[in-house]
Design a protein around this nucleic acid. Structure first.
Lengths: 127, 127
DNA sequence: GATCCTCCTTACGAAAAGGTAAGTACCGCA
DNA sequence: TGCGGTACTTACCTTTTCGTAAGGAGGATC
């Protein structure tokens, strides 16, 4: 049983509610990866998020599933196979994050912050 | 000297960079308040964010000033007067948060989460 | 002379978030 | 027989964030 106590509080406005769902060290990236690849398995996501631990990845995925952002499909095979993809809400959230991402890129350019290379995730940055 | 150690890390993408700047319990609301009122004094902001402590408010305001989102103007008077407003970057960030806010409102409607009444902040929710 | 007002700062502690490492269960491969 | 690959879970610890309470400077008010 993961914590999950303080979230879903009464929200003051929509931004509050949206930030609640995407705040978490890797959630933005998970959204990004799933949007880019449509369907990903656990180990693929893991490789796409350099530095994430298995614990954090499962924890975030579970929370995002609870929040109705990702769809989790388990195949009863051996070895086990689990596929993750975005739900409709996840996709619309990603669209809503589009302009925010553009702002962030401007911010990075503005102050010359480095961007870490991710190896696999070297696809188009603008969207 | 506040902590401020882990932020501004190398970012993986724009969303990462933008979320870094708005994550914090009250930052979204501060942006909202300053956008709605243009100029606010410390105590006014405090009243507009029910439940915030003075410590958190100053801490967040300082971080947002460092991040170039808010402008802080001190008037050499007694009793002291300090006015906060959004910078150009703060305003564009707020615009970028617009679609995210709309998504959040849909989410609130979808699952019937309550919205806490703020008293003063009862102006138009759509923008 | 005590208290209120402003906008903070500091110290302390609790809670939440995140990291590390190990264990689980089943199978294929060598 | 032992190792690797799948997708996790669990326990434990550190780091970060947030909350509470107190103090402070300097003038105005009672």
């Amino acid at each position: 049983m993961t914590a999950r106590s303080s979230r879903r509080g009464p929200y003051v406005c929509g931004i509050d509610a949206a930030l609640d769902v995407v705040s978490g060290k890797w959630k933005g990236l998970i959204l990004w990866e799933l949007d880019a690849h449509h369907v990903r398995r656990f180990a693929q996501l893991r490789r796409g998020l350099p530095g994430v631990s298995e614990k954090m990845l499962t924890q975030h995925l579970r929370e995002m599933e609870e929040d109705g952002l990702v769809h989790r499909e388990v195949f009863a095979e051996v070895p086990p196979r689990v596929e993750y993809s975005l739900t409709e809400h996840g996709r619309t959230l990603n669209q809503a994050l589009g302009s925010l991402g553009a702002w962030g890129i401007e911010r990075i350019d503005r102050e010359g912050s480095e961007v870490v290379a991710t190896g696999e995730t070297s696809h188009a940055r603008t969207r």
